[in-house]
Design a protein around this nucleic acid. Structure first.
Length: 199
DNA sequence: CTAACGATTCGCT
DNA sequence: GCGAATCGTTAGT
């Protein structure tokens, strides 16, 4: 399958990119273990005019620095001291946009995912939720700044029928004031791997 | 140096 | 439905 090119990530409309990422395949080949899944849920975060974004208003810190790099890099950070959350940096250098991947539908390497998640049997929970899919794919904080056009973690086209796309407010960003109402979360309608929302 | 806090998940009630 | 787990990042002293 065709790997997504640098140009895909360099575009400047992160909300549109978040929508387009539904149905794409994310692949990891880590320590010789290959696994992949179809993206079924995403959220857009913008470096400009978005209080939910870690790098809002040009907030450059050690953690957010990768978001200011050119699109096509991984932004992986530790949340609640436990979960590794995987984002795709987009837009040109100097713009801190990113798309959080919130859920995938397992494709290749389901057994490897079960092993990583310690799931004796497959369940929807295995890759439903941002912390879960990272663990299922073997993505850790050390993969921060990984170039997604290379051969450890990448995205590619798939033949999956995306179907209806639902938009909604993003999850867990109540601290963002009025920006918490932005409908920048996208997911495939009726897909059982989409994470359960409290809203 | 210290303290507060998460773009969450899981287990228990 | 509720609360604990758990630690790197951040801002402030």
């Amino acid at each position: 399958m065709t790997k997504l090119s640098r140009d895909f990530y360099l575009r400047d409309n992160v909300v549109q990119i978040a929508r387009e990422l539904l149905g794409k395949r994310i692949v990891s080949n880590i320590n010789g273990q290959l696994s992949s899944g179809i993206i079924v849920e995403t959220e857009a975060y913008s470096g400009k005019n978005d209080k939910a974004c870690h790098a809002n208003a040009g907030k450059l810190t050690k953690r957010t620095s990768v978001m200011f790099e050119a699109g096509g890099k991984a932004y992986v950070y530790l949340c609640y001291g436990i979960h590794h959350l995987f984002n795709i940096v987009t837009n040109h250098e100097g713009n801190a946009d990113a798309v959080l991947i919130r859920a995938i539908q397992p494709d290749q390497g389901l057994e490897i995912m079960q092993e990583r998640r310690n799931f004796p049997k497959p369940e929807y929970r295995i890759s439903s939720g941002p912390g879960c899919l990272s663990q299922a794919l073997g993505i850790r904080r050390s993969h921060n700044k990984t170039d997604l056009t290379q051969n450890e973690i990448w995205l590619e086209e798939s033949n999956i029928e995306v179907g209806s796309i639902i938009s909604s407010p993003r999850i867990g960003v109540d601290y963002a004031g009025e920006d918490a109402a932005l409908e920048w979360r996208f997911y495939m309608k009726n897909n059982p791997w989409v994470s359960v929302s409290k809203r």
